[in-house]
Simulated scan of single mutants.
Amino acid sequence: MISIGDKAPEFNLTIDGGAQFALSDAAGKNLVLYFYPKDDTPGCTKEAIGFSEQLENFNANNAVILGVSRDTVKKHDKFICKYGLHIHLISDEDGSLCEAFGTWVEKQMYGKTYMGIERATFLINSQGEIAHIWRKVKVPGHVEDVLATVTALNS
């Protein structure tokens, strides 16, 4: 399990629009890596819109925002277009990034057990270390909490 103070796992995956994004692309910046279950579902949409609306404030605090799900790049592109999102989304189709961050977990709904993405957020500092972890995230108030933590990190 990944912990605060650990070096963030290296990755190089495709984001919306078909470009590649590697951990090294965020060198010298804070990286907010948030994992969410699925594009275009109520909680995930609300979270993505929240991060998009606060993007200027995150930018002012030297932070990059990246959402991660196992949706395809094509689904990400449609999701971004439909809601006018201003953040980038990583397509982790094979689940390698979810595995590296420990967010591919056993879940339960209506008495059924299945594997899925735990809603979690990781703040990676400008040195590439895990500075803060939010697990089992509840969407209301989360973006504001992450922004306050990023702001405090820059103080």
Rank of each mutant, 00 (worst) to 15 (best):
94 D>M: 08
25 D>Y: 04
135 R>C: 02
16 D>F: 03
44 C>D: 08
85 L>P: 03
24 S>T: 11
78 K>W: 05
90 I>K: 01
103 T>E: 00
151 T>L: 09
61 N>S: 09
59 N>T: 13
115 M>F: 12
23 L>I: 05
115 M>L: 14
121 T>G: 09
70 R>K: 15
90 I>V: 14
6 D>A: 06
82 K>D: 15
105 V>S: 06
63 A>S: 12
149 T>K: 15
71 D>F: 05
141 G>N: 01
83 Y>N: 11
73 V>A: 08
9 P>K: 12
42 P>S: 08
20 Q>E: 13
87 I>P: 05
53 E>C: 03
58 F>M: 04
136 K>F: 05
23 L>C: 03
69 S>I: 01
121 T>W: 07
28 G>P: 07
14 T>K: 14
152 A>F: 04
41 T>A: 13
151 T>Q: 13
11 F>M: 06
4 I>L: 01
154 N>R: 04
112 K>C: 01
116 G>D: 06
46 K>G: 03
56 E>Y: 00
94 D>F: 00
39 D>R: 07
119 R>C: 08
62 N>Q: 14
10 E>A: 15
142 H>M: 07
101 F>E: 06
22 A>E: 09
69 S>D: 00
4 I>M: 02
148 A>V: 03
10 E>P: 09
121 T>R: 10
31 L>W: 02
14 T>I: 13
118 E>D: 12
48 A>V: 07
72 T>R: 01
5 G>C: 03
57 N>R: 01
131 A>K: 15
60 A>S: 11
12 N>G: 04
16 D>L: 00
50 G>H: 00
150 V>I: 04
79 F>P: 08
80 I>W: 06
39 D>E: 03
88 H>Q: 15
116 G>M: 05
99 E>D: 15
148 A>W: 04
72 T>I: 02
64 V>I: 15
117 I>C: 09
97 L>P: 07
107 K>H: 11
108 Q>M: 12
96 S>T: 14
93 E>K: 13
49 I>C: 08
148 A>M: 08
44 C>E: 09
127 Q>I: 04
122 F>K: 00
75 K>D: 12
106 E>W: 04
54 Q>W: 01
91 S>Q: 02
46 K>F: 03
6 D>F: 04
88 H>T: 06
35 F>G: 06
71 D>I: 03
10 E>Y: 13
126 S>C: 05
33 L>A: 10
79 F>H: 10
80 I>P: 07
